[in-house]
């Protein structure tokens, strides 16, 4: 499916879901749940917490859709990521420090299906994650969204309420910041 076809399909599913079609919401969940989980997981460092916040994101999304209905102008994707981003921010507001704990299960998590040739790449994934959590919040977000989740610059702009130009600059600076942490 091309990107345009995907966008159209998503609009159709969103429209049906707003009307109360659970099946359509289920399809949107199927596509986005793993992505939202991955984003949250990278930000909060705990599997259980990421699971809870992912569930919470979808519940809030459903409620928002039923409340706002056809007034929704943003894409499902943008809204969902915004909700997830806000939930993470809320979580951190209640923490004493902004430290993201790289708990023991993360290593295990990365090595869930270790094949000999994959172990090395899993270890470098852990190295990248350790560096990622040290850079600014916005930098972390754009790196995950652009390179991991493969959102487009315009999608990220919509999500962050910024211009596309500002997002490009942010991505460039984020990468620079991350490279510094890796050195």
């Amino acid at each position: 499916m091309t990107k345009i076809e995907q966008v159209d399909k998503e609009k159709e599913l969103l429209s049906k879901a707003i009307s109360g079609d659970k099946e359509s919401f289920g399809q949107l969940y199927d596509f986005y749940a793993p992505r939202i989980f991955r984003y949250i997981r990278l930000k909060v460092g705990s599997q259980a917490l990421a699971e809870d916040l992912t569930s919470e994101s979808f519940l809030r999304m459903w409620n928002f859709m039923q409340k706002e209905g056809t007034e929704i102008e943003e894409s499902f994707k943008a809204l969902l990521y915004k909700i997830a981003k806000n939930l993470i921010a809320d979580y951190y507001k209640r923490k004493s420090s902004h430290e993201v704990l790289l708990d023991d299960d993360f290593k295990e998590f990365l090595l869930q299906e270790p094949a000999k040739d994959e172990i090395k790449s899993k270890e470098s994934a852990e190295e990248i994650h350790k560096a990622l959590v040290l850079i600014k919040e916005d930098y972390q977000n754009v790196i995950i969204w652009y390179y991991v989740d493969e959102l487009s610059v315009s999608e990220i702009a919509e999500l962050m309420d910024k211009t596309e130009g500002a997002v490009r600059v942010l991505i460039h600076r984020a990468l620079k910041s991350l490279k510094k942490e890796l050195e």
């Binding site: 793993p34 997981r41 990278l42 990365l110 994934a125 190295e127 990248i128 390179y147």
Partner: peptide, 12 residues
């Protein structure tokens, strides 16, 4: 960038 993309492997 190649290293960052390895984070795609994170799955629920």
């Amino acid at each position: 960038v190649k290293k960052i993309k390895e984070l795609k492997g994170i799955k629920p």
